[in-house]
């Protein structure tokens, strides 16, 4: 994910609002799966690759195709994510899942007033799951110390959030390959680099540490700031956060922007573990390799 822009000083998060006036339509084609060196006998999986219709986006079309042909069922999980569960019972050398969706973005600004520190207590039970500081998100001690200073100087949760975004964004360089799926926020902090998942986890930890409910969002992002209509470009799965400040507000800490019409939301949860695009088990005597590719096309 390329980075653009710098986080600037203080202020409300909404100043990064980058919405464009006319609705953009994006087509995302997400291909992923496994190849098996010695073939697989059977496989049971769940794909979380279908975008959600929210107040900020409308899903016009979506389909998930699996090869070899599999029996599948669709359901909504605890977090509201659309899940495609499927199983393959015949021997196969590769498992491929292709999720294609067309999404129209209808971003809108949050028009609820930000809250004060004292107001957070009223929602701490309702959003208790998004306040848990587990090992995935717990801030590194260095970050923790900086956050304590920030907390002392922030008059409102909103002010603290902006400061926290800056701390995380400035420290964590976007650099693929340094971290893995299982890397924790503190480990990424130690490395000083990571991918969007690590940046999101670190940001969640920073927010939750101050008692601000914060949740993980997975989805896609069109990589170009000015997407060209009709041009298909290589994209990636992306992750950002939502935090509660009177209402849920989004922020993409990797790119230091408020998610806009180039962001496509697929799943929300406490962390990456609640929204993996493809998760499952397979039976193979040999090694397996994962492949992923995302193509994004602006249609309108």
């Amino acid at each position: 994910m390329s980075m653009q822009g710098q986080v600037q000083g203080q202020g409300s998060a909404s100043q990064w609002q980058s919405g464009s006036p006319r609705p953009m339509q994006l087509r995302v084609r997400h291909t992923t799966g496994f190849t098996y060196a010695e073939g697989a006998e059977a496989s049971y999986n769940e794909a979380r690759m279908t975008p959600l219709t929210t107040s900020d986006q409308v899903v016009l079309r979506s389909r998930v195709e699996v090869s070899p042909t599999a029996w599948s069922q669709e359901y909504r999980d605890y977090w509201g994510t659309v899940v495609t569960a499927f199983e393959v019972h015949e021997p196969h050398d590769a498992l491929t899942v292709v999720a294609t969706s067309t999404v129209e973005s209808t971003p809108h600004a949050v028009d609820v007033a930000p809250v004060g520190w004292a107001d957070l207590a009223a929602v701490s039970d309702e959003w208790c799951e998004f306040l848990v500081l587990d090992s995935w998100v717990r801030p590194h001690d260095d970050l923790g110390a900086q956050l304590d200073t920030l907390r002392a100087s922030s008059d409102t949760p909103g002010e603290y959030a902006v400061g926290a975004f800056g701390l995380v964004h400035d420290h964590l360089r976007y650099l693929p390959g340094v971290t893995q799926v299982s890397t924790t926020a503190a480990e990424a902090w130690e490395a000083g680099a990571g991918v969007c998942q690590d940046v999101a986890h670190a940001t969640l930890g920073a927010l939750r540490r101050a008692g601000i409910p914060a949740r993980y969002v997975s989805g896609y992002l069109h990589p170009s700031t000015e997407p060209v209509v009709g041009e298909t470009v290589e994209g990636e799965s992306h992750a950002w956060v939502e935090y509660w400040d009177g209402d849920w507000r989004g922020f993409d800490p990797t790119n230091a922007v408020v998610p806009g019409d180039r962001h496509v939301l697929v799943a929300r949860g406490r962390g990456y573990g609640d929204c993996p695009p493809l998760r499952g088990i397979y039976s193979t005597p040999g090694a397996s390799e994962l492949f992923v590719s995302v193509e994004v096309t602006r249609l309108r």
Binding site: Y75, R76, D77, Y78, W79, D125, E126, C128, E129, V132
Partner: peptide, 24 residues
Amino acid sequence: VFTDGIVPRETVLTSPHYHRVVAG
């Protein structure tokens, strides 16, 4: 039971035996 304030959400949702996979 949560919205009526009988049991705090946290008590249930932090239980290691609360399996979200069967919700619904």
